[in-house]
Amino acid sequence: MNMYIHELKAGKRSTIIWTVTLLAILILYMSFYTMIKNDADAFVKIMEGVSPVIRQALGIAINQITSPLGYYSFVFSFILFLGALQGMNTGVNIISKEVRDKTADFLLTKPKTRVSIITAKLLAGLTCILITGVIYIIMSAIAMSLFTGETYNMTALILISTTLLITELIFYTLGFLTAVIFPKIKSVISVSLPVVFAFYFAGLMASITGDELYRDLSIFKYFNPMYIILNSSYETKYLMLSVAIIIVGFALSYVIYSKKDVHAV
């Protein structure tokens, strides 16, 4: 418990910054909704002027863009990218900082098993992400009510917003595993940004080509907001795939972390 609390304290500042950033973007974009709604035809025309390839890549559905959930889905694609970055950063940092800050000797010479150490870290990171995710879900509902003033499918909204949490968890797992395999990471962002961009790019390719393989590879396209709006549910295959990545990623992290040498500073 002491390690968990220590890690939570260490992650507090970063969690607050990320949460506030995500909420600020949500509120800023949602505050434009009334304006867009009032001038819906002009906005649709502008969107029609955008290349279909780019529209597909950004997941813009012309017929939905001026509805509350359609517009929210458009805004959400940017929020999802930042959320993925938060997840990846948190995972990479919580493991690699002990080597980077040379505190591994202090921690690993304490009477704790490696499993208990990695568990404390994992749970602390999960808590940070859960805090961001839950606050975001609540705030997204409030922002929708506040800025649209229209009726919408609340279940679909909650499901879409929850995909931020799921996506963050997947990237958190990937970051965690990456740092366990490559512990000597000097700069967190220099690792997490290219990885998140690579998956984002795969997502763009999935949208443009419609290729299932790209979609399987791109975490960003596991949860299609249009599908959620129409069905009020997730696609089972991608939900299962997400759960599998998280379980396998953490299981591998445990095995590798328990057996890895921690070299002198």
């Binding site: 220590h6 260490a10 800050d101 000797d105 202090f106 010479t109 304490k110 009477p111 704790k112 500073v265």
Partner: peptide, 17 residues
């Protein structure tokens, strides 16, 4: 983990949080 309950360790260079 059991052993380390009764070990005190001081390395040549110390680094803390």
């Amino acid at each position: 983990a059991t052993i380390k309950k009764d070990i005190g360790y001081l390395p040549s260079e110390v680094f803390y949080y």
